[in-house]
């Protein structure tokens, strides 16, 4: 991601980023899907934070944690849950021009 003039604030207070997990009850037989966002050299850090806030209603702090994880580690798991909703999130992130993909957890 491109830093531009954007400042990342409050990072010292942050703990390890964790993906949002869908609260819907699942049985053991239902596969779990995760939404990943991959790093790209084009989108601005401030833009990615805004997209996470917009798509997932994340707080600024949480959105920044995921953005930093994408930037630092190359990817971040931003949501975990059932496939249909995960697909919807992937498509919405792609509409915002982020590199997002769907993956079966532990698969």
């Amino acid at each position: 991601m491109t830093k531009f003039r954007t400042k990342v604030v409050g990072m010292n207070e942050q703990t390890e980023a964790a993906p949002e997990v869908a609260s819907a009850t699942r049985t053991q037989t239902e596969p779990v899907w995760q939404v990943l966002v991959l790093n790209d050299p084009v989108n601005l850090m401030s833009y990615v934070v805004k997209v996470f806030q917009k798509v997932f209603s994340f707080s600024v702090q949480r959105a920044e944690r995921h953005m930093i994880e994408v930037h630092r580690d190359g990817q971040s798991i931003v949501w975990v849950g059932e496939r249909e909703r995960a697909e919807m999130y992937v498509q919405e992130l792609q509409q915002w021009q982020l590199t997002a993909k769907l993956e079966r957890q532990n698969g």
Binding site: M1, T2, K3, F4, D40, P41, V42, N43, Y47, K50, Q95, W96, Q97
Partner: peptide, 28 residues
């Protein structure tokens, strides 16, 4: 406008700036 600009930047990178290394582009 934000999304359109993001798309244009992605396409410009792919079409015209593909030879520029990620790190060079990312850090300006």
């Amino acid at each position: 406008v934000l999304r359109a600009a993001a798309s244009l930047r992605m396409r410009i990178r792919e079409a015209f700036l593909a030879d520029v290394e990620d790190i060079v582009l990312e850090k300006g």
